[in-house]
Design a binder for these strands. Structure first.
Lengths: 238, 238
DNA sequence: CTAGCTCAGTTGGTTAGAGCAGCTGACTCT
DNA sequence: AGAGTCAGCTGCTCTAACCAACTGAGCTAG
């Protein structure tokens, strides 16, 4: 008979759960300090090692943030871990000969086309002005030959901020990040910056005009361009 | 001067990276066995504990899968960890008085409305038949008064399978899972099953007819119903 | 008195070694 | 040949010690 000793085992499995419960129960907001490791050992009745493993896992999920010599804190609840996971999944798939990067691009395209149509004509003037400024900056950067990745990212982020849904914006940013991380790692086929600028300008104009079909078409063309570039890169190199 | 000793420190930080690199370099597919803990210690030149912490973090990201007494394997690259993180984020936000659950619902609505319109009229007959069967089953379950969560999930999963993008399907499923996990935990306000059935039938009919606007409207109504129910639930209970 | 340093105390990071627990497969006894 | 057992792999947990990053009190030099 080995039926006894269940409560003692499975410690780590719900250590994570208990720490999460602690955060929820105490209504700890992002950035709030968590108990120190020794305190958690006492609170949860586990060894330092187990506590640390649980914290590491929670950190990987973005739920807590660990700062060496400082303390452990409730995480920013960002999607950084999702980006990590998505990026790795894509890289691994790519090296195994799958078209994972293309799938990631299609995911972005599908979501953004769906969103931009409902955005058309509903963006406040302030946001439109900000987007104008971003495209201007992009054109300047393109003329100077520099990279415009950051501005590109800012454009997309600002565009979907109008949806008034923080979660949505973050998910989109996560997709963007994952895609560009992988893209830079694998296929360094930078697109002509001037084309990118023109497409962004067209997206912005379409949204401003309130023509949702035109906006959708603009987004689709933008992604179509990227997609074409991607298809030319054979699956696995190395 | 404390400039020296960099290579030795930060061990754990890139232990994860090195394990990931190992997976990519060896082209290990999902399910492939990883080196055992002692082997990893030797390979990476780190202690058992550090190796384990790195593995725990990777497990939390879904990159590896650890089976007690059996071994460590390359993970299924599923979105289970994302679901976990999303669900926790939503629960925590909810208890802090945010409308995080509503935001999650809106995320699903935004994505699904965007997708269903491109799906309309492009689904093969086989998939349509399968969806018919699912709605039938749903109606049967509704009549018996049982829960139809699983069938609901299957409906959505089958619907978007037609997009021919595994990643997209998985992300949508992840959103569905996270939403329902939180919904069950917090607001147990089950919707009238017959209404759900009718709405699913309408979505299916709309997609079959190829009328993308109608399909979009059907999805929006489906979600609108859910949203109304959610708004009645005050933010934080206890 | 202030600017800067040092140093002790806090926190997390890493290592080592021992023993526990789940699974497999070969070996033995019936 | 079949069932039970045991040795050996695997990962899991614990203890104890030391390393490294950060903070703040207190001291020293200007």
């Amino acid at each position: 008979m080995r039926t006894a000793g269940y409560a003692l085992a499975m410690a780590a499995r719900d250590l994570q759960e208990r720490i999460k419960k602690l955060i929820v129960d105490r209504r700890l907001p992002s950035g709030a300090p968590l108990p120190t490791e020794p305190e958690l050992m006492r609170l949860l009745g586990a060894s330092r090692n187990s506590v640390r493993e649980a914290l590491k896992a929670l950190q990987a999920m973005g739920i807590v943030e660990i700062r060496h010599g400082f303390g452990t804190y409730v995480g920013p609840m960002s999607f950084a871990p999702m980006i990590e996971g998505l990026a790795f999944r894509t890289v691994a798939g790519h090296y195994r000969g799958e078209d994972s990067l293309l799938q990631l691009l299609e995911l972005r395209e599908a979501v953004e086309t769906g969103l931009v149509s409902r955005l058309a004509g509903r963006l406040p003037e302030a946001d439109l002005a900000e987007l104008d400024a971003l495209v201007d900056r992009m054109e300047r950067e393109a003329a100077e030959g520099g990279g415009l990745a950051e501005t590109d990212r800012a454009f997309h982020a600002t565009l979907y901020r109008g949806l008034d849904n923080v979660l949505l914006g973050e998910v989109l940013e996560a997709f963007w990040d994952a895609f560009h991380r992988v893209r830079c790692d694998l296929a360094a086929t930078p697109q002509d910056p001037r084309v990118t600028c023109r497409q962004h300008r067209e997206i912005l104009d379409a949204v401003r005009s309130g023509d949702s079909l035109r906006a959708e078409r603009a987004i689709r063309e933008h992604f179509g361009n990227l997609r074409a570039r991607l298809s030319h890169t054979p699956t696995a190199a190395s």
